[in-house]
Nucleic acid binder design. Structure first.
Lengths: 344, 344
DNA sequence: CGCGTCTTGAGGTACGTGCCTCATGACCTA
DNA sequence: TAGGTCATGAGGCACGTACCTCAAGACGCG
């Protein structure tokens, strides 16, 4: 009866499979020198006993800590800076859990650079790479190759389907766009709604726009879309785009990219702060200020801390080879009004 | 230089403090037989070296798993059932991390019963109790006593300030109420807004109501509040309360308690589904259905899974004595419209 | 047949901590 | 001064896994 409650160990697996401990170890850790047939017996025993590697013991026995490398675009925009903050916060909170975190910045929107960075990762030091992927076949190939070298890859914020990435951590951007439309459709008086995007060629932004247009057209026939204009995720250019939109009689604005400080300046300069309903993305200093002043009505956020925590959890699971069936909970889309701002 | 990168171990602490390993161990694990002065030297060394107990090794060395006991009110309402679900989901995901989870149901709104349950916990089997606290001095004392017996206590959903509870995990209910007002004030046409509470004597509900009234009165002078009526967190009674409110010309309803299935039935029976703006709490089968059908406009959610995960994380940290300064991130208030429902 | 390669087994050490026993002083009290 | 209690040290085993070495057997090939 006591026996029944004990978790199975590698010893049990070896006995059940009728092989030695060394062989089980080889199978578990992907070392060579095991016939397919023998590996099958071990896998079978693992299934029979519902064996799970003991994380505590596993991390303890490893010569080195679990190495996780973040590859982030070297853009200076608020959101990426926030992600970096989240990583260092999490790194601090993770001391004592045998995880060592590295962050590399690579040129933004540069597939070749990202592929090179991936190729340069040393499997001896990096067990898992967490990548904000750029849509590019070279990146796809680099991910596949890293995977073959024993570096698990997880995509963050923007996914790269069709690659060997093990998981994606991020929000459903189309749902975010639909939500923005739902809110603006009710907050803003019927009339033209201005749309600002970062770039028409970014997958995330494209998805947000799709969702936004579908719901606004489908459910709020009194509204129509003006734009989109490109703000390039940049304050100055977003300001210019916003000024252009505000010159027309818009009742609302949806900025689905970054550069919100520019948007706020444009509202200020035209004296339209509080008179035009505004939905923006990501909780940052700028958008918090906008919410507080009433310039922004709703901020749609993807919670960088949650994303980093999720990515690290996945990294650990993936690198220790125990992510077979269980799929991560999706990152939830956060909605913030002035009244439910965290830490207020 | 290699020396510099190594994490400090208990051996280092012993050397630094000029005491033996056994003494360090006594201090770390709160065992008796150490002079205050000696303990001080050890604490000093721990600070100097920035020593953190290695979780992996610690859990591995323990004879038994970390015992966490949840004490939940035995109410059959949707939210508590959801919490229980979240616990079992998390318990499943936590296999292999040496944490053993127990759930006890105690009579709802019964301070004496909760106090008794706390007193009955065995410190040999329970390292940390996670409690949905009832406002009652007997509970406060029971928490203090459990704390003295070596059982750390964390409050969940509803806090009990003034007790020896180590942390609180939950949302800011006043902010939730303010948010509801912000949304209803804009969604609903000016006019009377119906208010349904679970009970006027519940602390959480009281706070939500406060926040709601403050913002609705302060910012939406065209609206006024009708009610509150008590729904007792119960479907039938909530239905009755909603019918009473809907008999008047309300433009919106805020139900800050449970019993939403009853609210939906009332809307259906009066043919007002979709014609009255509705804000409710907690994502459940009922509120999801309401969002999907358009009967409910916004659901304010406190994310049970997140709360359970946070509580377990705290339990681990607290039970292993490493929660000195670092305070947990507050649980965020989730807002859901039909378009950003997770898993859609 | 002899050689090499591949597969497997046997056994050990190490990781950092928890917990146990036993011994050794220091100090207090009658 | 003898007996007791208390503070501390010394040392060892255990937890479950990772990773290492060495040896033995199987098998193929020339």
């Amino acid at each position: 009866m006591d026996e029944l409650k004990r978790r199975a160990t590698v010893h049990d697996v070896a006995r059940e499979a009728g092989v030695s401990l060394a062989t089980v170890d080889r199978v578990l850790n992907g070392r060579p020198g095991v016939r397919t047939e023998t590996a099958g017996k071990v896998a079978e025993a693992i299934r029979t006993l519902d064996f799970r590697r003991d994380l505590s013991a596993s991390l303890l026995a490893r010569a080195r800590d679990l190495g996780v490398t973040f590859l982030l675009p070297d853009g200076r925009n608020e959101f990426m800076l926030g992600l970096i903050d989240a990583i260092s916060r999490r790194a601090h909170a993770t001391k004592g859990e045998r995880i060592s975190i590295d962050t590399m910045l690579v040129p933004a929107f540069d597939g070749a650079a990202l592929a090179t960075a991936l190729a340069g990762l040393d499997p001896k030091q990096c067990d898992c790479a967490v990548v904000v992927a750029t849509e590019d076949d070279r990146v796809r190939r680099a991910i596949d190759q890293a995977s073959r070298r024993g570096i698990a890859v997880v995509t963050l914020v923007s996914d790269l389907p069709g690659s060997a990435r093990r998981h994606f951590v991020g929000i459903d951007n189309q749902a975010a766009g639909r939500t923005a439309a739902s809110l603006l459709g009710r907050f803003a008086a019927p009339g033209p709604i201005g749309l600002i995007v970062g770039s028409l060629s970014l997958a995330d932004h494209h998805q947000r726009r799709e969702g936004f247009e579908a719901v606004l057209h489908g459910e709020f026939p009194g509204h129509r879309i003006t734009g989109p204009l490109e703000g390039r995720d940049d304050d100055a250019r977003t300001e210019a785009a916003a000024l252009e939109l505000l010159a027309r009689p818009v009742t609302g604005i949806y900025n689905l990219g970054a550069g919100n400080a520019g948007l706020l300046r444009a509202l200020e300069r035209t004296g339209l702060t509080g008179k035009v309903r505004v939905v923006a993305h990501e909780l940052t200093d700028a958008t918090r200020a906008g919410l507080a002043s009433g310039a922004i009505d709703v901020v749609i956020d993807q919670n960088p801390d949650g994303e980093i925590a999720a990515a690290l959890g996945l990294a650990r699971a993936v690198a220790l080879g125990q992510d077979t069936e269980r799929r991560p909970a999706p990152i939830e889309i956060g909605l913030y009004l002035r009244d439910n701002l965290p830490r207020g």
